[in-house]
Design a protein around this nucleic acid. Structure first.
Length: 347
DNA sequence: AATTCGTGGGA
DNA sequence: TTCCCAAGAAT
């Protein structure tokens, strides 16, 4: 094994973090748990994932249990975690593994890659961590560490291919899973985005960014585009019994499959209240609530104005009437929780 | 190949 | 307040 790999593994054996999905040293990993944690950790912090991970495993201890659940139940459990396509693919993947693989995840990276929600990173992570294969998962941490170690000048995301190749040259034949987790721990704790604790880094000696430049200047990045702001009116419609109207969003796209408070189209162009009213699911005398709801997604800001009113009788609508105390039983994304809270406290 | 996908915490 | 960005994948 190369000195470099050994240095990092030694560091990992001393400093490794105790995480819920991380098995004791030398102990065999449960592929289902590795998979679950890796899907949840996609673009999501360790701190945020922990409680969801525990809840999911308690609720669905095996992949067969998860496959047997209703998608809506999975989306409900996933609410607040974001990137809801992950939940839809999680459920789909559980079905495929249960049905086509008899409940056992395939061991080969190539076959893992064919499963829903599993891309290059996750396939390599499962292959190495759960099955001990020599694979190199490349996440943001690995890209950052490698870009500094070799002082890669190419900007992201163009540098991704080069960084992945460099990373794979580092991976040892044995303990590839530990090595991968060590790289990620290193990036998360020592070689972090805004500060590099080079003094305690196991790789300080050969790090080119430390020797010849400023480590935190890497990886180099292209300038980001500004986020546009979209606006809309949301309709907080209540029935005589106090129930509020919810409806399900389309399966694909933003917040796909989740429940929502009905609204006009989210548009960058200004819309008048009168124009928006034509999109109300039911007629009612609507009053504009003070304040509003602001929310920021990955690529745009959203400003919502809440229109609140009571409908007459029980009009036919595309949706479901839900009592405020029962909102918790539905798969509401954080944005919609903000809206309901605003309406319930302001209205 | 560039966009589209959430959310919360920290600087 | 605003910006950054976190164990990426799908299209």
């Amino acid at each position: 094994m190369s000195t470099r790999a050994q240095q990092l593994l030694d560091w990992y054996d001393r400093e490794r973090r105790d995480l819920p999905w991380r098995m004791a040293p030398g102990k065999k990993a449960d592929p289902y748990k590795v998979w679950m944690s890796e899907i949840m950790l996609q673009q999501t912090t360790v701190a945020t994932v922990k409680s969801y991970y525990r809840d999911f495993l308690q609720k669905w201890p095996t992949v067969q249990d998860l496959a047997g659940a209703d998608l809506d139940e999975v989306l409900h459990a996933w609410q607040g975690l974001g990137y809801y396509a992950r939940a839809r693919n999680l459920h789909k993947c559980a079905s495929v593994v249960t049905r086509e693989y008899n409940g056992r995840f395939p061991e080969e990276e190539k076959r893992l890659l064919e499963l829903p929600g599993i891309g290059p990173y996750t396939a390599a992570a499962i292959a190495s961590i759960a099955f001990g294969a020599k694979a190199t998962p490349v996440d943001g941490n690995v890209e950052r560490v490698v870009s500094r170690l070799f002082q890669v000048e190419e900007k992201m995301p163009k540098a991704k291919k080069q960084l992945a190749e460099l990373a794979s040259t580092l991976t040892p034949e044995k303990r590839a899973g530990d090595f991968a987790q060590a790289m990620m721990d290193l990036g998360a704790t020592v070689c972090s985005p805004k500060k590099a604790a080079c003094g305690i880094c196991p790789w300080m000696e050969g790090c080119e960014a430390r020797l010849k430049a400023e480590p935190t200047d890497y990886p180099k990045k292209e300038a980001k585009k500004p986020k546009p702001t979209r606006k809309a009116y949301v309709f907080w419609l209540t029935r005589k019994d106090g129930a509020v109207l919810l409806r399900r969003r389309p399966e694909k796209g933003l917040l796909g499959g989740m429940m929502e408070i009905p609204s006009s189209e989210w548009s960058e162009a200004d819309i008048t209240k009168q124009e928006a009213l034509r999109h109300s699911p039911a007629s009612a005398l609507l009053k504009e609530l003070e304040g509003g709801v602001r929310h920021t997604f990955t690529h745009f800001h959203l400003e919502l104005t809440v229109l609140s009113g009571r409908v007459n009788g029980n009009p036919p609508v595309n949706g479901v009437w839900v009592l405020p105390e029962d909102l918790k039983d539905h798969a509401l994304p954080t944005l919609m929780k903000k809206v309901s809270k605003h309406a319930l406290t302001t209205g």
